[in-house]
Design a protein around this nucleic acid. Structure first.
Lengths: 469, 469
DNA sequence: GGGTATTTGTCCGTATGTATG
DNA sequence: TCATACATACGGACAAATACC
């Protein structure tokens, strides 16, 4: 079947269906689609071009009526014999200078920060967006609650309760423009003079934020259960920044016992707080979902941070923080005056998105999708080689490969790059210069790679790392 | 195999396939269909329900994509394991009833923070919004530049150059979610150990931000020309926060000479900076527009902050900061890692809005509108009484009434309130407890009051303050 | 036990309704 | 009113699995 590569200009003065029509007509005229050849089905093409099926149908109908293609009911459309067809001006389209120059140094990118590009519910979002701009006009002009719209906070609170076992009222929530901002805000809320303990390796944005806002920092080693509370206990830290659900980058899931130890640490002295970053907890593939640390916290020591960046789209720029009562009080006293950083329209869209059940459906869809990719990646990796172990799987959208001796990270990354595959080393996530492992540890994020790409990429990795294709 | 007993409501507003989808989803959720159990085939069910097979197919496809069922080709559909699936039952939507609770105690509100409610180009904005969501889909998934999209920054830089005489390249601009955020960011960029001089009275959000981020603060008195540089010179401040175009709340416009003095202050010692908040400079009604202070700054001492809150809508949450080279360098070193706080979609919408000339048109429209209101308010006020003088007119969207002796602010506000008119006193804008004037000074913002309302409101004020209707 | 009819998911083209500008 | 685009609903063709003779 002929593979079409049309680039549509949406919003152009030329309607979509005419662009499709014109393209295919040209391909047939100039023989790139020969007579009898099957064309992509309306469904396939509509999915491929990301337009409605009816739009493609309109194009096909026009081609049909002009005799360029033939329809075989229930089978498909086929290019017709075009001899004798009038061709007034078979204009040769000169290739518009290729825009793709800057891309594609890497054919495959296992970035651990990716999200799937194709699953965003554009149509729903657009509809909700329009509804908000039509229905709630006046709302655009009221500045809105600094913490975020009450309705959205209610929706988030309900979601967190059911999905993550987080106990909170909407009043405890602050909606903000991204995790970075919320961390910055939190630092302002807590004020100066704190020492924060970070896992090592950790989420570097957090490390940088604390560092640049003049917090004292100490790093605490991790074992397979997460941050070592016995080590934490010996530090002077009064804040602990942790990712119990799926540590970044290690992928560690903190078991209940360790969580309890951590909570005990938090109440041993006054004014200790745990900052729980639950950045990608939405995605778990095995076993029962573990409730958030916040859910076990009876003493109000856990500050919970979550985001829609991973679960919807990074460009959305919406995250939320759940503060215990004592922090709430500080927030209102010190930072209650700071206006919300999220557009009210966006907040209203998201609120509707959650309330109307779209968010639930979307999450389930994404989970199914990511699980599938996760399974395929695991299967492919097991075929690739045996001199590494895998960790951090079963949750999130990335996993780690721990190689045996004799392999350096730089070498692995370089070899992969030479074959067009971008992989990431663990060492860049260590702070304070520490990097305890001599052996290569490689991160593979699979969120923005489809099945086919995963297979091809692992195939290339095999070639790169083991020399056989 | 599970026997389904669905009663479909044909012609309902809920589509058939969604009814089927919803029913089966519920059965699975509530365990009436257990995992692994076979579902009726699309044909069986379509016959049973007397709908098309494709309708059933559509329902099954949705269930499949959300992970509720699994497909075994040529064999059938089977209920999947649903552990970990998200089930969000939103709590009752926040009653739209109590939204209006806090409003409408006042019939007329002369808030100095208002904007006009009816002039927002909803249709244009909606169209651009739609275009962005259709056109630049992939952009949603790239995180975007921390400073804001390059295109938007170019557009802002071009606008600032033409309209405000600001000299900058797009690289010097940071786009952020509101002035509050940009001030917070700026504090992080500058780091600790600074002393900032504020006009008194001043924009209280700025005062609070500096105070809460542990900056030393000193206040500098104002005369009719703005901040007194001679007083500033005697302080230890290395930062000066000023609003030369139209000081808030006094409405003072700083003349050229004073601006030069201020610039001279900034170069007298190293590492001094002027923060210029140009929050409502778009609106001037008399005389030539005065370029921004930044435009006169040859030494790179001025940090310029502007916003779209006043000129478009507060809910938009987009502001921008122009940094001189030296601050740029600090920004990149200390805060370059902080992700943008503005949704990419919103940035793209705004960029198009500016580039397509809508912003220019909108500004001119708003200026004409506000000038009209300004003129009418002035005329009405002159008819109202003679025991006050007016200042701060000719620019911005608010002005001040300075009353003679024997009138206290509290009394004026109370009298107005008793007649359903909300006015604002100057004293709340003073910081450090200072409030030099004994006499009442009243702020009147006219941005969100139309001609009719202005006339009615002033009429009521006359009644309230002078006793005659 | 091997051929055959049936069942099944999957793919397909088609028709009509609806929202928007 | 009309063009454009999308949503919903319909039923036939195909190939693989399976049940049945």
């Amino acid at each position: 079947m002929y593979e079409l590569t049309i680039s549509l200009r949406q919003g152009d003065r030329i309607p979509l269906y005419e662009q499709i029509y014109g393209y295919i007509r040209n391909e047939i005229r100039e023989g790139r689609i020969s007579s009898g050849e099957k064309l992509p089905s309306t469904r396939m093409l509509s999915r491929h071009l990301d337009v409605s099926r009816s739009t493609v149908e309109l194009a096909y109908e026009q081609l049909l009526s002009e005799g360029y293609i033939e329809s075989r009911p229930y089978r498909g459309y086929y290019a017709a014999q075009i001899e004798g067809l009038y061709q007034i001006h078979p204009v040769r389209k000169v290739g518009k200078a290729d825009k793709k120059r800057n891309r594609a140094q890497y054919l495959y990118d296992f970035t651990p920060n990716g999200v799937d590009l194709n699953s965003f519910p554009y149509n729903t979002w657009r509809r909700l967006s329009r509804e908000c701009l039509v229905d709630d006009r006046a709302e655009l002009f009221r500045l809105g609650c600094p913490q975020g719209e009450a309705g959205l906070r209610s929706a988030i609170s309900a979601y967190l309760h059911q999905a993550r076992g987080v106990n909170c009222s909407p009043e405890q929530i602050v909606v903000g423009a991204g995790n970075d901002y919320l961390l910055m805000l939190l630092c302002a809320v807590l004020g100066t003079g704190h020492r924060v303990a970070l896992e090592n390796p950790t989420y570097k944005q957090a490390y940088r934020m604390f560092k640049n806002l003049s917090f004292d920092i100490c790093t605490v080693d991790m074992d397979q259960k997460g941050m070592r509370v016995d080590v934490l206990d010996k530090t002077e830290a009064d804040l602990a920044f942790v990712m119990p659900s799926h540590q970044y980058p290690l992928g560690t899931v903190m078991p209940i016992r360790r969580r309890m130890e951590l909570l005990q640490w938090s109440v041993k002295k006054q004014d200790r707080y745990i900052i729980e970053d639950d950045y990608d907890s939405e995605f778990r593939y095995k076993g029962k979902p573990i409730p958030a640390l916040q859910g076990y916290d009876a003493e109000g020591r856990v500050i919970y941070i979550g985001t829609f960046s991973k679960s919807i789209a990074p460009a959305i720029r919406m995250s939320y923080m759940v503060m215990p009562e004592s922090v709430c009080e500080m927030y209102h006293r010190r930072c209650g005056f700071i206006n919300s950083t999220v557009s009210k329209v966006d907040q209203m869209i998201l609120q509707k998105f959650i309330e109307d059940g779209h968010y639930e459906r979307h999450l389930n869809k994404m989970r199914a999708l990511y699980r599938n990719r996760h399974d395929i990646l695991l299967a492919e990796l097991k075929e690739m080689g045996t001199d590494f172990s895998i960790s951090g799987e079963n949750a999130g959208v990335h996993l780690l490969l721990h190689f045996g001796s004799g392999r350096t990270e730089e070498e692995m990354i370089r070899l992969a790059a030479a074959n067009g595959v971008r992989v990431y080393g663990l060492s860049e996530y260590y702070v304070d210069g520490a990097s305890p492992s001599e052996n290569a540890v490689i991160l593979l994020g699979y969120a923005n790679m489809d099945e086919k790409k995963i297979k091809e990429a692992v195939h290339l990795l095999k070639k790169a790392w083991y020399g056989n294709a």
